[in-house]
Design a protein around this nucleic acid. Sequence first.
RNA 1: GGUCCCAUCGUCUAAUGGUUAGACAUCACCCUUUCACGGUGGUAAUAUGGGUUCGAGUCCCGUUGGGAUCACCA
Length: 442
Amino acid sequence: MSNGNIKVRFAPSPTGFMHIGNTRTALFNWLLAKKLGGKFMLRIDDTDTLRSKKEYEDAIREALVWLKLDWSEEARQSARKERYEEVAQKLMAKGRIYACYETPEELEFMRKRLLNKGLPPIYDRSGLKLTQAQKEEYERQGRRPHYRFKLEDGEIVWNDLVRGECRYSEKNLSDPVIIREDGSFLYHLPSVIDDVDFGITHIVRGEDHVTNTAAQIQMFEAIGGKVPSFAHLPLLTGKEGKLSKRLGSLGVRELRAEGVEAMAICSFLAKLGTSEAIEPYYSLEELAQSLDFSKIGRSQPKFDEAELKHFNTRLVHNLPYAEVKSRYEISENFWQAIKGNIKIADDIKLWKSICQDELSPKIEDSELTNKGAELLPQEPWNEETFGTWIKALKEASGKNGKELYHPVRLALTGMNDGPELKVLLPLIGRLKAEKRLKGQKA
RNA sequence: GGUCCCAUCGUCUAAUGGUUAGACAUCACCCUUUCACGGUGGUAAUAUGGGUUCGAGUCCCGUUGGGAUCACCA
């Protein structure tokens, strides 16, 4: 499939670090673009100037680069204010945007009053009924207006790629505030203007945006833009069931630091909550080809960090040598020898160091290990060497099983567990092995 | 409270109205003279009450539970 006109966007607001929820949205967009042969753009939604920070923006880029979710185009909302104002002027002239003079406190009070009466806290549109004289009176009092988008009567319907047909009545929606008292724009309208201007064809985002979608569809229509396709992903929940705060703070940066592979995060997130098995994918391309919105369930999957870590280990065990080679200087032999016994890719360094660098051995049973040193055969060594040697040591010492193996492993590697000793021994070599068995640094 | 969405093993899901299936985790066994890796097998679920039907996980209504939204956040 290929369609040059397909374009999706990832539109994070730089008000926090890249976390698992964010990443999932970015990933699904990227995957969709890849699968359809379209483009993926990055849009920095920094309309909330108070909370937006350069630091967060940098972190988002860093995470995207690490995940290999590359983008071909970029935009920044704070740089497009003139365009938003131009569109807002037109909508005002058409009566789709109207001024309101309530203070945030008054609105809050009204919401509480409605809620207490068991009514939905929907704005009563009193701004719409204001006369010119009343507005002037407010201005004299020093009040500045904020602006709302007027929703038209009727049902708003769209066919969601994940949720199927969605219907919302405007009666259950508040006219969204789109321009603040200080003249700055809120998210809703700029997002729609950008989607139209940049030719966005598909919007993939979290389920928390479904009611926004209803209002935004009217905005698309009001400015004469083509309404894109929507896909609303069920929100991830935490282990405890609630959308935990931990999830928000579970950063990509932290996961990376803990040794979680980018492809583990991507594979896991792409398949969690779908009818497909969560399996390691080793390329985003392959993952993209497997994308199928119809396989996404509608209930909220639980995200468990421990499961991700476990999955990561499974993925690491089968990392292709080419991938490993590009990151660590090791031979294919070495990789084959240790791959089944590492938890994270960085453990490669540990085992490489154990085999090649100097190490202070831990001696548990000096009588045994000293004898082992004496019995060590001459090189060349291969995978058979260990078998003959340990057999000789067993006979000489009378030790067996764990009593035999554990002290040997500890002396040779300084570790309680690890790859099979028969593959490790030739890698360590006679020189080091003999010294270590004797308790000497080597 | 209004609106919308959801409910099957511990977890993620499957099942034209017709024997509840698979994957991950877990457990056991096998392989390893060790820890692991790997292989084989087992345990384990339709939230609840009605209705429709010869027959309901599936359709309808109620209950309970969970989530989203109703911001001068995005």
